[in-house]
Amino acid sequence: MDKDAFYWEMVKRNIGVYTIEEQEKLRKARVAVCGLGGVGGYEAILCARMGIGGITGMDMDSFDISNINRQMLASTSTLDEPKALVAERIIREINPTIEVKTVKARVDEDNAVELLSGHDIVLEAVDDMPSRVIIHRTARELGIPSVGMSGSPPNRGFVSSFFPEGVPYEAALNLPCMGKKLTAMELRQQIADIKKKRAWYSVKMGAPASWAGNYCEGKDGWIITPVRAHLLALFSFHEAVQILTGREPLAPAPKGILIDLDNLQYPIRVVEPPEGGWDYTTL
């Protein structure tokens, strides 16, 4: 089967939901996935399955045993392998016609422009706040839309889409670093500490207080359940597909997709921010 025939056979069940013209747009699209863990690893797989033409995946870590509970690229046979390498191999096993490039690196002030330029959309799937700010800020500077997410215990999550001409990431989330470089350690720490406040807010929402204490002292990792990480990946990816096909995303910033699986009426909905914008500690 030639490359074209394979491509259209692979994506034929997409047609009916999307038109052939929209599928062509996805085939031409170049997507950057920052982070290949619980959220980004799944997003990379979704890009390949959906028929996205080009993927760049970035992650500097290797797989660890405790990744297996949620990271779709992690298995017993990929332990200790770089996430970037495994991602590239699995993407090619899904769609050998895809243009895939992976980089064993963390996106930071000094490499962000180089890593993110040339893409049509950026999917942010990292777990530290300074990196998130750098990714969305750089995408905006480069004129590229970006999709951001965050997840908190027990089963909560947030997704929003950012456009170069729309509300910036830091403004939508009321972060205190608007317009400032994140090279100063003090500011970086201030941004990173927001996550500790989110841990304590999570306790109010049902997470164990002993965990939040341990997390803030650096003894425990962030609590993550598979289903929440994966819903974040799927809703972020759906935003990206809507944007790439020229349709409307569900949550252009400052709107957000709020996930709370303990909400027994509306587990997932689109919400306008409260007056004055989002308080990131509550997300």
Binding site: I15, G16, V17, Y18, L46, M50
Partner: peptide
């Protein structure tokens, strides 16, 4: 919002059920 052309073809047995990854996975 599904494509009418797809539905016609599905009813004639020419196309399989249309389904995209995010929805099936969710």
């Amino acid at each position: 919002g599904a494509l009418a052309d797809w539905a016609d073809k599905y009813l004639r047995g020419e196309k399989a059920w249309a389904v995209i990854s995010p929805v099936a996975n969710i």
